[in-house]
Amino acid sequence: MSDIILAIDTSIDCCSVAIYKKKTIYSLSENCKKEHTIKILPMIQKVLINAKITLKDLNYVAFAKGPGKFTGIRISIGVAQSLSLSLKIPIFGISTLSILAEKAWRKYKKKKILVAMNAKIGQVYWGAYIRNSVLLWTGEETESLIKINEIEDKIKKFQKNWILIGNGWEKIKWKKSLKLEKKEVLYPNAKDIIPFCLLKIKNQEFLHFTKISNNYLDNLF
């Protein structure tokens, strides 16, 4: 049987789960705000049923490692780490901002993505992502927690072909920059974790459950 991957995301208000099996992705997504703990396990069970597999069939598990809400990230880490340990399978942690970039690519086929996601008052999580010729995203090194007024200065240097995604742009005065375009991508989805996992599997970049890390940028929530 081909590799089977379970991906989960509880990093912000949406809770989503996806399974990759034989080049098919089965997924569920729900806006649940503070009910991640209640929703995540039943959603995993439902996707397993849809994919006609059990937990024992999984070969890999992946999670959105943030940035995002502290509690949500801890839920993703806890569930993924427990599965990795009990099933003795590798684990992957993927940046939430890069997952948003991948979702924008899936929906709009754009390769230059500016991500801004709501943080605490007056600040957003920021990242600038570029998709290269081997379908790999670069930009995780640009991720930061940044003041809104600093972003308004920062975006002045970006040329055309960059698009804006994430719920943080609702707070930012970006319309003066006529070269930029905002797209309707507000929340990540676990199905967009899958391409990162496939690339890591191909490159044999496996992690043990003891080596996972989060990406809080700042403990805000």
Rank of each mutant, 00 (worst) to 15 (best):
L85R: 12
A64I: 08
G68R: 02
K110F: 05
G122P: 02
G66N: 08
L85M: 08
S27R: 05
T37L: 10
G68C: 02
K120Y: 14
S84G: 14
S76C: 14
I40T: 08
I5W: 00
V124I: 13
S82Q: 10
G72P: 04
T96I: 07
T37D: 13
K34Y: 13
D9R: 06
I113L: 09
F70M: 06
I77G: 09
S11K: 00
E140Q: 12
S76K: 01
Y26R: 04
A7K: 02
I73T: 10
D13Y: 09
K23W: 06
E30P: 02
W137T: 05
T96E: 07
W137L: 01
S84M: 03
P67Y: 15
Y108K: 05
T138C: 06
G122E: 01
V115F: 11
K110W: 07
K110A: 09
K103C: 02
L41Y: 00
V17K: 08
S133Q: 14
N50A: 09
E140D: 15
K112W: 00
N59T: 13
C15Y: 11
L135C: 10
I113V: 14
I5R: 02
Y129Q: 01
I77T: 12
V134G: 01
P42C: 10
S29E: 15
L48K: 08
S82R: 06
K22C: 03
S133Y: 14
T24H: 13
N31T: 05
T138F: 14
S84L: 07
K39V: 07
G127N: 05
G68I: 09
K52P: 00
C14Q: 12
L87K: 09
R74P: 07
A7W: 07
L48I: 10
L85G: 00
A64N: 07
K69W: 13
Y125C: 02
K46Y: 04
Y60P: 00
L58M: 08
G72Q: 04
I73W: 07
G139S: 01
K109E: 13
W137G: 04
P42L: 05
K56W: 00
N59Q: 11
V134S: 13
K21V: 04
Y20T: 01
G78L: 09
G122Q: 00
S29D: 08
V61K: 08
K21P: 00
A80L: 03
K111C: 08
I130G: 01
A104D: 06
K34Q: 13
K69E: 14
L41M: 14
A51Y: 07
K33M: 09
I40D: 03
A51E: 02
A51L: 00
A7P: 01
L55G: 05
V17N: 03
T24Y: 06
S76G: 15
P67L: 14
L55Q: 14
S27P: 01
K112N: 15
A7D: 00
K22A: 12
E35P: 00
I73P: 04
S27L: 04
A104F: 01
T54E: 15
L48D: 05
P67H: 09
C32V: 15
I4V: 15
T24S: 11
I73V: 15
I25W: 02
Y20I: 06
T71R: 08
D13C: 02
S98H: 00
I44H: 03
K109T: 02
A51W: 08
I38C: 04
M43H: 05
